[in-house]
Computed example of a mutant assay.
Amino acid sequence: MVEARKGISCCKHVVLPVLVVLIVAVIIFLVKDKAHPSPVPSIPSSTPSAAPAPMVPTLENGTYGAALATSIQFLQIQKAGKLVGNTIAWRGDSALNDGKGASLDLSKGLYDAGDHMKFGFPMAFTGTILSWTILEYKQLLTGYGKLNLALDNLRWITDYLVNAHSADNVLCIQVGDPKVDHSCWDRPESMTEERPLLFINKTSPGSDVAGETAAALAAASLVFKSSNATYSSSLLKHAKQLFDFADKYRGIYSYTFPDLANYYNSTDYHDELLWAAAWLYHATGNMTYLQYTTDNGKKFKGYGDPTYFSWDDKRAGTQV
């Protein structure tokens, strides 16, 4: 058993996972505002020279709605691949050959931040949280006219993750060389550097990233279940296979590939196993997954109480 978490792992490039958490936060504020609109404080008549009272953000003045729109648009901006129906004037097709050397189509997915890297661990977490957001706040997203964009962003992620899972016990977890990529400053449409692939498998395990990818696909299967049953079933099939892979061949991916600790270092994998099992239970209703979370949740209790929720630590999420 690996050591307990000792703190927040360092990461230089956290824009994508932080952004999707921001989307959730904005929606929560919108829900609260709708239930309890905040009045704009009035200025007492006895103080005519007082400065105007600051505007309190509400649904009426659109502050949170604008934040939601901008956050979802950011995910659109981060898209790689063939941009069908592109609405971002300064973005174009890019990374069309990603994965071709391994006979895979990895052209889709989202770039991580201001670079051209596709890091599977935070991208999968983005997919899980975006799915959760759609499931919880579908009506609100619809009301703001952002549901279709959210669904489009989610499918852009899940299409990539499905293609990255090329065999039962094989998963591509990275496209691009971060050292080379971070020495360049150019548009993704213009990049010319090599785009190597990095895989986990039986002998090079990564239970954390495989588990998070399983969680993302299981959660997304719920999102698409009513609108595209065939696609939903495919997502669920991959989620089950990835969970079995993560559980059977255990290891921390940034231990398997130490250089990755400089980017998205993982401090454990047990939380991802619980997180994935929880989502698989919701997606399938299979009590085996619920029993897994119950039994192993007790076993991993010595890892301490969560103090935050992030792409690296899902303990808080598994307790919801």
Results as ranks from 00 to 15, higher is better:
G92V: 06
T87H: 00
L171H: 01
Y160I: 05
V175H: 11
A80L: 05
P178A: 08
K82C: 01
G120M: 12
D105L: 12
H165I: 14
K146V: 13
A80Q: 11
P205A: 13
P188W: 04
K100V: 06
T192V: 04
K138M: 08
Y111M: 03
K202W: 00
Q139H: 08
Y137T: 13
M191Q: 08
G143M: 04
Q174L: 10
K108D: 15
E194A: 08
S183D: 10
D93V: 03
W132H: 10
G109Q: 04
I157C: 10
L130M: 15
G92S: 14
G85Q: 03
W156Q: 04
P188N: 06
F125H: 15
L106K: 02
E136N: 15
K138V: 06
G99Y: 09
I173G: 02
W90A: 05
L198M: 11
N201F: 05
R195C: 13
D152Q: 11
S103D: 11
G145H: 08
D115H: 12
A210Y: 10
V162R: 08
G99A: 07
T192P: 00
D186T: 14
R187Y: 09
A95Q: 07
D177R: 09
D181F: 06
M191D: 01
D159C: 02
I173S: 02
L106M: 13
Q76N: 13
L198F: 03
V162H: 00
D105S: 07
D177F: 06
K82V: 12
A124Y: 11
C184R: 10
G127P: 07
Y160H: 05
D105G: 09
L110S: 14
L135M: 13
S183M: 09
H182N: 13
S94T: 06
V84W: 11
G176N: 00
T87W: 04
N97W: 01
